[in-house]
């Protein structure tokens, strides 16, 4: 038995018929071909699957697609608006904030939500903010640096826009 859901993904309206037990991550990856969102565990521990649902970071392995009915979902594929890299993407690249890249999409989405909540986080706040996302490669230090750089850049841009 499948359910009809309607969600907005990266600004595009999508109508899907899904099994009620289908995790959101598989709807994104296998029905919408948005494979940037990864799966790294089966205990809601790693955060590789993090997407934003109505602006809130959510581990999409632990939310059913049917629960996202009517919501707006943002994935890593939606970050570079108009082909221009998001300040976080740029900062991860410039600061070597990734190695194998498997955690990166989830990390970026968590960081985006963190900066939306707290535009100038301290190092401790950043480390706490990304503590639901595991990275096995980088040791986090350059990820923290990247988020600090993006925060600085975004607040400069915001100040210039005032």
């Amino acid at each position: 038995m499948s359910h009809h859901i309607e969600i907005t993904v990266n600004g595009t309206h999508q109508a899907l018929d899904v099994e009620p037990r289908l995790p959101l991550v598989f709807a994104l990856r296998e029905m919408l071909d948005l494979t940037g969102t990864h799966v790294g565990c089966d205990t809601t521990s790693c955060g590789a699957c993090t997407v934003l649902v109505d602006g809130t970071p959510v581990k999409s392995c632990t939310m059913f697609a049917v629960q996202a009915d009517g919501c707006s979902v943002e994935t890593v594929e939606g970050l570079a608006a108009g082909g221009e890299l998001h300040p976080l993407q740029k900062a991860f690249w410039e600061n070597h904030g990734l190695q194998c890249g498997f955690c990166t999409p989830g990390m970026l989405m968590t960081a985006k939500a963190l900066l939306a909540r707290n535009p100038r986080p301290s190092e401790v706040e950043i480390r706490r903010g990304i503590s639901g996302n595991l990275c096995r490669c980088t040791g986090y230090q350059n990820i923290v640096k990247a988020i600090q750089q993006a925060a600085a850049e975004q607040s400069t841009a915001a100040a210039a826009g005032d």
Binding site: G36, V76, E77, A80, F92, H96, L98, P105
Partner: peptide, 21 residues
């Protein structure tokens, strides 16, 4: 040098095993 492999990873365009169908 900035890494040449990064643009695909930061944009969710890596091609890992489970991404292949």
């Amino acid at each position: 040098l900035k890494r040449k492999e990064d643009p695909r990873f930061i944009q969710g365009q890596g091609r890992y095993l489970d991404d292949i169908r």
